[in-house]
């Protein structure tokens, strides 16, 4: 675990929709091997931030550095996709079997079939889906679909894993699976950002606690007592 190496850095990043600023991050740096907790009310911009980090949407302003290299916003997004894997709150299952779904990312990498099959077999075992391998993914229960999504992301060994709204929607077994996954990622020197309403079960695993309020990012100290804003207060008339 080589701490201190920055995976991605955002500077003065803004995302606007319909003329409204929905995300406003003065600076954010995610180092390798770190686990970050992201809290905030509904609509505070948690998904927007996670999708930005995943390269699924483009910032309207600001700078992005990936592994220390300053990149144009489009290039940064391309760089992030496939390396930073985003998991939806309700997972999307492709129209196919559980196996097909697990293999999706590996197929995009054009891995040879034999390697792919072996990796999928391993993922099936990890997510306890062996018995369901050939079932249609959309015929599974929500909990089973969540396991498919976790296994599908884990297979790609992402340097940054972005979990959107991990909480009430997970049953006990899946909660434990998420915790295992987070610990595993950390052991591999990879980073995780977990957005959740219910931080309690994850607190032991996280290094930092970020809080979003109306699109503004603040860091909560490790004792979870004080909130330190990550941006200077905006004074009217300041350029």
């Amino acid at each position: 675990m080589s701490g201190g190496e920055a995976l991605i850095e955002l500077g003065a990043v803004e995302v606007r929709r319909d003329g409204r600023r929905i995300l406003d991050v003065e600076r954010l740096r995610i180092d390798r091997g770190r686990t970050l907790l992201l809290t905030g009310a509904n609509g505070a911009g948690k998904s927007t931030l996670l999708k930005l980090l995943a390269g699924l949407l483009l910032a309207d302003a600001g700078s992005l550095r990936c592994r220390g290299v300053e990149m144009a916003r489009g290039s940064a997004a391309r760089y992030c996709r496939g390396r930073h894997v985003y998991l939806h709150q309700t997972p999307y299952m492709f129209d196919g079997s559980v196996r097909d779904n697990l293999a999706y990312g590996l197929r995009q990498r054009d891995e040879p079939r034999a390697t792919r099959d072996a990796e999928v077999d391993q993922a099936l075992a990890w997510a306890d889906l062996d018995a369901l391998a050939l079932r249609h993914a959309r015929a599974l229960s929500l909990g089973e679909q969540q396991r498919v999504a976790l296994g599908r992301a884990r297979l790609l060994d992402p340097s940054l894993l972005l979990l959107d709204e991990v909480g009430a929607n997970l049953d006990g077994a899946n909660q434990r699976l998420v915790q295992t996954l987070i610990a595993e990622r950390r052991a591999r020197g990879a980073s995780v950002v977990v957005a959740t309403h219910e931080p309690a079960p994850l607190l032991a695993l996280v290094d930092f606690h970020l809080h979003l309020d109306g699109g503004r990012l603040a860091v909560v100290q490790r004792d979870f007592g004080s909130v330190v804003p990550l941006r200077r207060p905006r004074t009217p008339g300041r350029s």
Partner: peptide
Amino acid sequence: GDRRAWEAALTLGAAPWR
């Protein structure tokens, strides 16, 4: 259609045309 299909494909490393 479900926008998550597009996002899931991209985040799992599919090139935009794929």
